[in-house]
Design a protein around this nucleic acid. Structure first.
Lengths: 132, 132
DNA sequence: GGGCATCTACGAAGCCCTTCGTTGACATCT
DNA sequence: AGATGTCAACGAAGGGCTTCGTAGATGCCC
């Protein structure tokens, strides 16, 4: 029962999760530095990141190991799982629940590499094959 | 210059926009009734909807005609335009800017009808055709 | 040990979103 | 005209998100 529903992460929380997914488990300092390397103009303070991560711990979005003086955090949900949740959410709220309309909007909004198009085609094949 | 960037609508605002897209121009009362027909358990009050729509007017998300006693509102951006914005947003924040990964996640998250799959296939064809 | 750097914890402030009660204007019906 | 119902406007309250200053604990180096 440890897999109950996690809340939808906010923009700030998502930025932190992205660092954790990319780097693996990290301390607050590491996350803070990664964020400011990625977005030098934003400049969020150290304690701001710390506070966010503390709240995320309360919400269950991350877990932390307090055995070291500098606590070590890790994302509780995988990147895939979170992406699925966010997509489902947007699909319901803005696309009337239609995955295809969302997918088409995504593909139209930016150029996609031939390789990715091929992967998509493959996915379509498998979806059509598995009709029930 | 009337086409500047509109802010990302909140969840509540998006629900109202959906009513306006579906019904066309509407009064507050009409929106309120449509929402409570759609989500009977939620039960947002009339003044709540009114307040939201007033704020949306300030933000530029909707426009209103005040010539009648019951003001008539209409969405300022089309459904398509808003969907594109929301998708781009999510793509940047959670998918590292990759449209294909977002599309695949969308298609995996829910069963898609054969007809929609066919439409998608067609879109893929046209995208591949238009390589530069 | 004293001084310095690093880290967590706490709390407050500011802003936005949502909700709703109240008020005053306006219309309609009798 | 007076009663009733509908409407926009306003303000306030509550909660969540973000930001940061400050304090207290801990580790390290001379």
């Amino acid at each position: 029962m440890s897999e109950s529903k996690l809340p939808r992460p906010t923009d700030g929380e998502l930025a932190i999760l992205r660092v954790l997914w990319e780097r693996g488990t990290s301390t607050v300092r590491e996350v803070h530095e990664a964020l400011n390397r990625r977005e030098p103009e934003e400049g969020t303070g150290y304690t701001t990141v710390l506070k966010l991560m503390q709240i995320m711990t309360e919400k269950g979005l991350v877990e932390r190991d307090e055995s070291q003086r500098a606590h070590v955090y890790r994302a509780k949900a995988t990147e895939q799982r979170t992406q699925r949740q966010l997509v489902s959410d947007l699909m319901e709220r803005a696309f009337g629940g239609s995955p295809a309309r969302l997918a088409m909007q995504a593909l139209s909004s930016r150029k996609t590499s031939p390789q990715e198009l091929a992967e998509l085609r493959q996915l379509l094949d498998s979806l059509e094959g598995a009709d029930e």
